[in-house]
Write a protein that binds this DNA or RNA. Structure first.
Length: 547
RNA sequence: GCGCCCAUAGCUCAGUUGGAUAGAGCAGCAGCCUUCUAAGCUGCUGGCCGCAGGUUCGAAUCCUGCUGGGCGCGCCA
């Protein structure tokens, strides 16, 4: 935002100095105080090609910029940086512009006219979501929010399979528990069955509600009944959990529909026509080695059933055919193996794989009191996402799961998450928001009203300027986070924003200051409130008015 | 063995796509509330950016090779 105030001037000066510049001038925000508000290395980048010393070239450029009331200082520093220090008036102008954005502050239209499909969660209905699923849920939903905030038409999608072996095993597991509940204790529980407590819960419910009917059924019918009831139970559980996290999908896509529509068969056929499919050992293979992948993979088993790979390819093709400009997949690191196969598949079918963006998040470790907490999905003592939400709250769950870069292993500190105090980073942000709301309430009580026309030139404290500077970076930060599909960038930004506000709050008295100053500071606080609120909304975290 | 990810302060992590003296939080130490929320603020302590080379004006960042850890490598998803 600051750049537009200086870029044209510098561009002209560069041309005058004999530089050929294509594209915008690169700017950075110096981290060091005393290096100005904005910095460019343009002279260092081009010094060599026109045979000048970097510092000399930088000086030449600086000399070519006409004095302006907007620029307080323009100087050459270090090996050849050009540092720009704006006058306070620039910040006052920026704050005025930011205020005019109202509740839309932080919103961008850089994705306008484009559509994006984000597929996340996508757990099969074989059980409740476990705590580790929280990362996929939170990352996916936050990315969807980010794209929406940048103007994309966003579709949130959940892909599931309710027809495979896993579902049969779910039905069988429930069936056996049910038989036990009905008194047939001689049936053995399947080796690789689902051991979770919820299986027992479902079985007990079925026994009491449909015991007589089930007794009358054949084993196959009863098992099918159990499978169906199990699926319904699991889906209800999953949706309830997602609801608690404020996650709502637009589309639930059933893998099964790809068979009904003939898309799976068509995919095999088209790959075959391109010479990428062959039969071996009774199975049908996808010749991935022909497109540069390390090994061929089975897409239809000798039993006639497809492996997950085939419908996955058909599914991605379907998403691309639905016309989304961008198709985003959110996968855990344990599913990384499918990515090259699926991409190779859709590429072989003639689609541009640049439209597909795969976010792979690393695994989560839960830690308490310095000890790693071990949970095994099959042990029966699983740690569900519901348990986690109950323990630490939905806001903390969402925030903790997105506060680290997706590519790094996430250590989820349960002790820290449970603290409702100053050590907990979520509260630091919410506290800043609540504090501002409190002041606005108090101002209202005192009859002090928000004045959009307030004279902002009285804001000259370093804390005030720093806070405005932070606010001015909000939109570009949201754009960058969306562009790179990096939710944690927002969390980092909001921490800095909250810090800048707390500093301002501490040093600059608002209520009771000189009327002009009070008015200007109140406006600054309110713009900060809206930015903080929108940032928290992007993260799907609550925005309490008081704490 | 092969593929992907990671390695930065005692701990957990940032680092604006290659910039200046590498930053936060927590932990530790020392301060700040008769005034808008102290869930806050200020200061101090703390570093071979895993190791070794390379690329260039300049590398935590890019390339190569190691070391250590995570996740995968199925006619499971």
């Amino acid at each position: 935002m600051m750049q537009k105030y200086i870029e044209a001037e510098l561009q002209a000066a560069c041309v005058a100095a004999g530089l050929q510049i294509d594209g915008p001038i690169p700017f950075g925000v110096p981290k060091q105080q005393g290096h100005g508000h904005l910095s460019t290395n343009i002279a260092m980048m081009h010094a060599k090609q026109i045979g000048k010393q970097p510092r000399a070239l930088a000086q030449e450029i600086v000399d070519g910029v006409a004095p302006s009331p907007l620029i307080a200082k323009l100087e050459v520093a270090g090996p050849g940086f050009i540092n720009v220090t704006f006058s306070d008036a620039v910040y006052h102008a920026m704050l005025r512009d930011l205020n005019l954005l109202g509740d839309e502050i932080g919103r961008s239209d850089c994705g306008a006219g484009r559509t994006a499909n984000i597929e996340y969660v996508s757990a099969n209905p074989t059980g409740p979501l476990h705590a580790g699923h929280g990362r996929n849920c939170s990352v996916g939903d936050t990315i969807a929010n980010l794209l929406a905030w940048n103007g994309y038409g966003v579709t949130r999608e959940y892909y599931f399979n309710n027809a495979g072996n896993q579902m049969n095993m779910l039905g069988k597991s429930i069936y056996v528990r049910l038989q036990h509940a009905l008194g047939n204790s001689d049936i053995e529980f399947p080796e690789d069955g689902y051991h979770g407590e919820y299986i027992q819960e479902i079985a007990t419910a079925l026994a009491s509600e449909h015991g007589e009917d089930l007794r009358a059924m054949s084993a196959d019918d009863a098992m099918a009944f159990c499978r169906k009831a199990g699926e319904a139970w699991c889906f209800e559980s999953i949706k309830r959990t997602l609801n608690a996290l404020n996650i709502h999908h637009d589309v639930y896509f059933n893998e099964d529909s790809l068979y009904g529509s003939g898309k799976v068969a068509a995919t095999v056929e088209e790959l075959r026509q391109r010479g990428l499919v062959y039969e071996k050992d009774g199975a049908t293979w996808f010749a991935l080695t022909q497109v540069g992948n390390p090994q061929d993979k089975v897409i239809i088993k000798s039993t006639g059933e497809p492996t997950y790979r085939l419908p996955d390819i058909a599914y991605h093709r379907d998403k691309l055919e639905r016309g989304f400009d961008t198709v985003v997949d959110i996968f855990g690191a344990d599913h990384i193996a499918t990515v090259p196969d699926v991409l190779a598949g859709v590429k072989a079918l003639g689609f541009d794989t640049d439209r597909v963006r795969v976010v792979i998040h690393q695994m989560v470790t839960f830690v308490e009191d310095g000890q790693v907490v071990k949970f095994s999905k099959r042990s029966g003592k699983s740690f569900t996402l519901d348990d986690l939400i109950e323990e630490v709250g939905a806001d903390v769950v969402r925030f903790f799961f997105i506060m680290r870069a997706v590519g790094t292993h996430l250590e989820f500190d349960l002790g820290l998450a449970k603290e409702e105090g100053d050590r907990n980073p979520v509260f630091y942000l919410q506290y800043a928001h609540a504090r501002i709301c409190s002041i606005l309430r108090k101002a209202h009580e005192r009859g002090v009203t928000l004045d959009t026309e307030a004279d902002l030139s009285v804001l000259i404290d370093a804390r005030e300027i720093e806070l405005i500077s932070m606010l001015s970076r909000f939109r570009s930060t949201v754009e960058r986070a969306a562009e790179n599909l990096e939710p944690h960038v927002i969390a980092e930004f909001l921490r800095d924003l909250a810090g800048a506000y707390h500093n301002f709050y501490h040093d600059c008295r608002i209520l009771g200051a000189e009327p002009a100053l009070e008015s200007a500071r109140l406006l600054l606080a309110d713009v900060t409130r809206r930015a903080m609120r929108n940032g928290l909304l992007i993260l799907g975290v609550g925005t309490p008015d008081r704490m």
